[in-house]
Amino acid sequence: MEIRYRPILESLVPPDPMSQFKLKRRSPEEEFPDLCRNYTWMGRILTPAMYCRQFNRCTHSGVIFDDVIRPGIEEPGDCSGPASVGCVAGDAQSYILFCDFFDRIIEAYHEHKVTNQTPESDCNFDNLKGGDDFDTTYAVHCEVSAVRGIEDFCFPTHCSRGERRRLLSLARRALQRLEDELPGCLFMLEELNPEQQKKLNLNPPSYSQLRTGVARDWPDARAVWVSKDGRLVVWVNMEDHLRLVSARDDANVAEAFKCICINLQRLEEYYRELRHPFIYKQQLGWVTSSPADVGTGLRVNVYMKLRLLPQHKRLQDVLKRLRIHMNKTESLTVYRVSNAITFGLSEVELTQLVVDGVKLLITMEKRLEADQDIDKLVPTQK
C-alpha cells in the first residue's frame, strides 16, 4: 500500500515535518500505545512497525498520526459489541498520507478491498425496487441520511473556529440556493430554545465528542436547516461538515431515499459553483472524518416493531448474512435496522440491501408469531 502511494507521499511531506511543532516526544517504540485491551479495528490492525512508519508524518494542516488514533485509545470498546473503527481523519490529506493504515481499516470494517478503481456510484432512485410497501404493523418509520465533507477545510475534529465559521457561511449560501427548489429555514443552534432542540432530536454533545474535539466551542457556528414540509433536515458543522437527513413516519424508504438523492445532487452542484466541492477520493469515493462513512456516506435506518425475532438463536447469523445491523432503541419492542457498511456498494445497492433485509425480517417475525420455523428463510452469505 505504501509503495503504491510513495510518490504522492514524498511530494506532500517536507523533509522534517515534525520539527516545526517542537513536540517533546520520545522514540516511536516508547510512544507506542497500549492496545492489549483495545477492541476497535485500530487496536487490531495497528502494529509497532506501522506506527513507526507513520510517526513523523504530518499533513499541511498539522494532523499527526496520534491525532488519528486518539478516539480508539480513549474509547477502546468491548468484546461484546461490534467493533468501531477507533480512528478519525483530521483532514482529507490524512487518507493519503496515512494510506497504509486507513486502507486496512476501511478494508476490515467494510469487508471490501480498496483498489485502484473508482467506487461505483448510483443515485438513480428509480433503480430501487420496493421500499414503499412495508407492512406498517412492523415497519414504524424510517430515516435516510448522507454525510459530506467540503474541499479545502479540515474535518470537525481538527478545524479551527475560523474554518467552522467559513463553512457555515458557505452552507448558508448553498442552502439559500436550495430554497429556490425546496423552501426552508436555517436556525443557529445557540438561538434554539430547549423545546425546539427537543423537537429536532438535538442532544448536547457527548463526552466522546468533547474529547475528540468535534464539539469544540459548542455551539459556535453550528446550525440546522429544516425544509418547510419537514421532508429534509441539513445539519451543519456537527459531527461532519454536512449531514442531510430525510425522515418519514410511514417508513417509506423509497421516498426518503429519493429526497436525499435529489437534494444531495443539488447541493453538490451549488458547492461546486462556490469552488468548494464535496471531497472525493478516486479509490475511496466520498470521504468525511470517519472511515466508517467512506464510499457513499449513506445510512438507511428502518425502525421496526419486533417481539419474537430479537430473541431467536439464529438472529445474529441472519443479520451477518444480510449485511445489516440491528440495535435496540429506548422502546423495548422497537429496533433500528440499518446498513452495516457504506463502502463497496453503490447508493442504490446499499438501500436495496436494507429494503430486502427488512422485508425478510418481517416475514420471519410473522412465521414466528404463527409458531412456524424460520430456518429455511435464512439466506446464504451475500
Rank of each mutant, 00 (worst) to 15 (best):
K228P: 00
A254I: 01
T115D: 00
N127Y: 07
Q117Y: 07
Y270H: 11
A139E: 02
E75R: 14
G90D: 11
D240P: 06
E190C: 02
Y51M: 04
P48T: 01
P48Q: 00
N38D: 15
W41S: 04
M18A: 07
H112S: 07
K328T: 15
H276D: 05
R44M: 15
N203Q: 14
R323Y: 00
T351Q: 06
L244V: 12
I260E: 02
W41Y: 11
S94Y: 07
G90F: 15
I45Y: 10
S11G: 14
P219H: 10
E191M: 03
A247T: 06
E31N: 10
Q372S: 09
L244I: 11
N252W: 13
R53G: 13
V85M: 11
Y270N: 06
K320L: 00
E191V: 08
L175W: 00
H325L: 07
A251K: 03
R299L: 08
V302L: 08
I362V: 04
R70V: 05
D220Q: 11
R367Y: 01
K305S: 14
L361D: 06
E191I: 00
Y207Q: 12
M18K: 04
T136Y: 05
D371Y: 13
D375A: 08
I105G: 00
M50F: 03
S289G: 10
A146F: 07
S121H: 13
L168E: 08
H276V: 08
T380Y: 04
I106G: 02
S206N: 03
Q282G: 10
F98R: 13
L361M: 10
V147G: 01
P7I: 15
R161V: 06
L189P: 03
D229I: 06
I279K: 00
L210R: 13
K22D: 15
L178N: 06
F134M: 01
Y51I: 12
C99K: 13
I150W: 03
C159F: 01
I105C: 02
A251G: 13
E120I: 14
L9K: 11
C154P: 10
N252S: 14
K198C: 04
S80E: 04
R70G: 03
T329I: 05
P219L: 13
S19T: 07
N201K: 11
G81D: 14
F21Y: 15
R243E: 12
C87N: 05
G62T: 07
S338N: 06
D100F: 01
H158I: 15
P310Q: 05
E111L: 01
L319R: 01
T342K: 00
L186F: 11
F125A: 10
V354E: 06
L200G: 13
G72W: 00
D240E: 11
Q93E: 15
E239D: 12
I3K: 09
S19E: 14
L264R: 09
L306I: 03
N38V: 02
P14Y: 09
D371M: 09
Y207D: 11
V114H: 09
K113I: 04
D91R: 04
A139N: 04
R248N: 05
R25V: 12
W218C: 03
Q372R: 15
D356W: 08
I260R: 04
K198S: 04
R57F: 05
C154Y: 03
D122L: 05
L232H: 09
F32R: 06
